[in-house]
């Protein structure tokens, strides 16, 4: 396996040399070009400029694609390794002498076994109950609150917004003890309420996102609604909501993925086997012994499939949605 290390080192060295040479050439040729603009340079220098910019173009191109391919490979490799390992036998997984990427006989039965051992269906249903109970309410309530901020008259608007945003500074770990105590007293441990209740009042970050989006919708639409005698709720339902399609879709996708991957809060409140979410089931599967490893990877792969399906299907929301929150919010 040392050959791999050597190849890697050579690659890295080549990259480094390429960067250094490219930088040296490009800065010198840039200097010369600037001189040329001002007063003219000799033929030899001109040749250098031509050579170096050609070198830079090719070298820079090779370097750029090299970095992209390396990053891509690094990003994908763990997933590929997960799938490859999920098709191995327990012996192959713990074989230190020979690492194989393509197992001799793919053990598709690992998936069936993972599926049944940890009651994936139950975990999936529990996760879906949480998704279904939180997403619609949270999305509607947050966008209504955003409507009050973006299109309605309100005194001290900035102060209200800042107070609400300040809640984002508080880490969940800091409120978890009193909340846990309260839920315990209310008998909410091992129910979905601790995960559903807080979202019923909307989410501040989602609200902030919607405010940014709603500001882009012209006020005139709501004024004409007002003249036609529409109340605020009607304006919201009949004018605002139909126009918020892309924003809501993006937030639904984000929230679905967030809920799907949520681990900290569910791990505190859901300890009974029959209420565990998919992620918790996966965690308990991974606590088993080493012989179970292939099933664990199969289970992990199964939990990733819906995520990636959604990711590829809603590709544009990831880029667009994040871009708005990313540059709009500061902190």
């Amino acid at each position: 396996m040392n050959a791999a290390v050597i190849v890697l080192l050579v690659l890295l060295a080549a990259l480094a040399v390429s960067v250094a040479a490219g930088y040296a050439f490009s800065s010198r040729s840039a200097r010369l070009r600037a001189m040329d603009v001002r007063g003219g340079i000799g033929a030899r220098q001109k040749a250098f400029v031509r050579f170096s910019s050609a070198y830079c173009r090719i070298g820079g191109r090779v370097l750029a694609y090299g970095i992209l391919f390396l990053t891509c490979a690094a990003s994908l490799f763990p997933f590929l390794w997960m799938i490859s390992s999920s098709l191995k036998t327990p012996a192959e997984v713990s074989n230190t002498m020979r690492l194989v990427f393509f197992p001799a006989s793919p053990q598709w039965s690992n998936y069936a076994r993972a599926w049944t051992t940890i009651d994936m269906v139950g975990g999936f249903l529990n996760t879906m109950i949480i998704e279904a109970a939180t997403i619609p309410v949270c999305v509607i309530v947050s966008s209504l609150e955003a409507f009050a901020f973006s299109k309605m008259y309100m005194r001290h608007k900035t102060v209200h917004l800042l107070i609400l945003l300040s809640g984002l500074m508080v880490p969940y770990a800091s409120v978890v003890l009193p909340l846990y105590r309260a839920y315990y007293k209310l008998g909410f441990i091992n129910t979905f309420w601790p995960l559903i209740l807080p979202t019923m009042f909307g989410s501040v970050s989602q609200m902030f996102f919607y405010i940014q989006y709603q500001k882009g919708i012209p006020d005139a639409m709501f004024e004409s609604g007002k003249i036609d005698g529409a109340g605020y709720l009607q304006q919201f339902v009949h004018i605002m909501l139909p126009m918020m399609g892309p924003a809501i879709a993006a937030q639904v996708v984000f929230m679905f993925i967030g809920n799907w991957n949520d681990f900290f809060a569910p791990s505190l409140y859901l300890t009974n086997e029959n209420v565990k979410t998919l992620q918790l089931k996966l965690k308990s599967l991974s606590d088993g012994n080493r012989m179970d490893l292939p099933y664990v990877f199969a289970g992990a792969a199964i939990t990733c499939v819906p995520l990636f399906a959604i990711y590829f299907a809603f590709q544009r929301y990831f880029v667009g949605g994040l871009a708005i929150t990313g540059t709009g919010v500061k902190g």
């Binding site: 990053t71 891509c72 990003s75 994908l76 763990p78 997933f79 390794w81 997960m82 390992s85 993925i257 799907w260 991957n261 681990f263 992620q279 996966l282 965690k283 991974s286 664990v296 990877f297 992990a300 792969a301 939990t303 990733c304 995520l307 990636f308 990711y311 590829f312 590709q315 990831f318 880029v319």
Partner: peptide, 18 residues
């Protein structure tokens, strides 16, 4: 862009396991 962003979407539990 699509491939490099994939790790962000994947669940923390599965990624920690692998």
């Amino acid at each position: 862009r699509m491939l490099i962003y994939m790790p962000v979407v994947a669940g923390a539990v599965a990624m920690n396991i692998i």
